Structures are given as C-alpha cells and as structure tokens.
Simulated assay, not measured.
Amino acid sequence: MNDRSVRVLITGAGSGLGAALARAWEVRGATVLRTDRTPGEGIHPLDITSDADWAAVRDHVAQTWGGLDVLVNNAGIAGGGRLDVAGIDEWQRLVDINLLGAVRGTATFTPVFKQQGSGRIVNVASLAGLVHPAGMAGYNATKAAVVALTETTGHELAAHGVSAHVVCPSYFRTNLMAGVEGRDAALQSVMSKLVEDSPISADDIAAAVLDAIDVGTEVIIPDDAARGAVQLKQTDRASYDAVMRAQARKLDKIAEQA
C-alpha cells in the first residue's frame, strides 16, 4: 500500500499514542483524520460510545474521501482495581469504551471495507491483553477481548482483502493516567509510576507499529518489555505466576500502608 495514497482514521488522536500514530503516518505522506471526544484544532469530534457519532464520521469519510484504507481503534481509558475494590460501574465504563468502542468502529466500517475489497483495521489493546497482572481485572479483560475481537475480524474479513492487527505495548510515557477514574488508589499509584518511569515514548511505539504493519504482523508487541513478559508466560509459566503473585502481594501492601 502506497503511504502517499493512504487514508487513515484514528480515534483518540488528540493526544498520546493516537497523536503519535497520526504524526507517524503523516510523515509518510498519508492523509489522516484525527478524531477525539475532546474538541481541539484539527480534531474531528467522535465519541466512540455513540452510534450516532460513528455514523456521522462514516458519512464524513464517504463524502470527503470516498473510502478508507486504515481504521485505527486507538481510543481507550486506563482503569481497573482489585476485585473487592472496583465497582461494577467501573467495569461497565471499561467495557463501554475499551471494548465496545472498538466493536462499534469495526462494525461501522466493515461494510465500507467489504465494498472496497481492501482495508486494514488496527486495534490498540495493551500488553494487559496478553499478560494479566493482579489488580487490573477489568482492564485486562477488556484488552484481552480486543485481542480476541481482532483475531476474529482478521479471519472473517480475510476473504474480502481486509487485514486486522492488534497492538499490545507495555507501559510507555503518555497522558493515559490523567483521566483515570476508580476507587483503587493503590493501583492508580502503581500504574502512574510505571507510566512516568518508562523509557519508552508514544512516538517509539508508533514507529514500531507502522513498521510491523508494513510486514503484515497481526499481533504487534512493539517493545522489549512487552516481548519479554509474553515470552516468560509462554516459556516458564511457574516463574510468570510467581512474578504476578508477588506483584499482587506488593499491591496489597501498598494499600495497607496508605
């Protein structure tokens, strides 16, 4: 696919990884429609939980471009909490945004891609979709569901010339934690520190994602920390479980000291 003719729609592109992906594609000469729930210069409004908003952006794409080459379901939120701390309302919010946002985007543009006989769907999940730390059940579950959604999408649409890719990075520096909501203050403290201390930037992840898409990688694990965690789980389950359970004990201790 010639990047200079590529039409890309990115959700959650007002900041963070969405903005970094937009910059990376634009540097290659692609035409990018940046969408976000938060209004801003150069941002097309899109609340990914709204069917009406998705229909409107589909109509905008049809009228402006006549089609779409790449849909990036990037928008999402951080969250979660230990099983006896997080409420069902927190679970529901994670499901509505992290999972059903990607479902709505995929369902909206699947007919467009089928009619064209081409297209790419890129869903941004997380390492949490493959590796499941304690205290993050709601987040882990929604991101794992995005991994499953992407695999199913790839199987279902392959005959129509459409590929599906899922992105599973570990912690990287972004503003994701700025909007976090939830009752588990201990988890939020741990996650915030992991984000702040990460040596990886959103631009690093974006560059790795585009390189992986170029070669057709379907499950994109774009950084060494993520690849190491997945490898440990696959090759030494006992050690992986020990690490995860030690993290669970540490989280409980932090909560006790708060």
Rank of each mutant, 00 (worst) to 15 (best):
C168W: 02
S118W: 11
S126E: 10
V85L: 11
V124E: 05
I10Q: 02
D51Y: 09
V70E: 02
D197F: 10
G79Y: 00
A225T: 13
W54K: 11
T49S: 08
S201T: 15
S239E: 15
G135P: 08
Y240G: 00
G138F: 05
T35A: 10
N175V: 10
V57P: 08
N140V: 10
A159Q: 14
H132A: 13
L157V: 13
A107S: 13
T110V: 15
R227H: 00
V122H: 01
F109Y: 03
E151S: 06
G179T: 14
E41A: 13
D84P: 03
M136F: 11
H132I: 00
V190D: 12
R58M: 04
L94Y: 01
S201E: 11
Q188W: 12
R249Q: 15
T235W: 04
R58N: 08
D241A: 09
G29S: 08
R82C: 04
A158H: 12
A30N: 01
D241M: 12
A19V: 02
M136N: 11
V122K: 00
R183W: 08
S50Q: 06
A164T: 07
K193H: 13
G80S: 09
T152V: 15
L83Y: 10
N98I: 09
L176I: 15
I88D: 10
Q116D: 08
V166W: 00
L99V: 01
M136Q: 15
V32C: 04
R237G: 00
G42I: 09
A128G: 13
Q231D: 15
I97K: 01
V167N: 00
G179M: 12
N123A: 03
T38D: 14
H165P: 08
L251S: 04
L33R: 07
D223F: 04
A19L: 13
V243H: 10
K253C: 00
V195W: 12
K114V: 14
R104K: 12
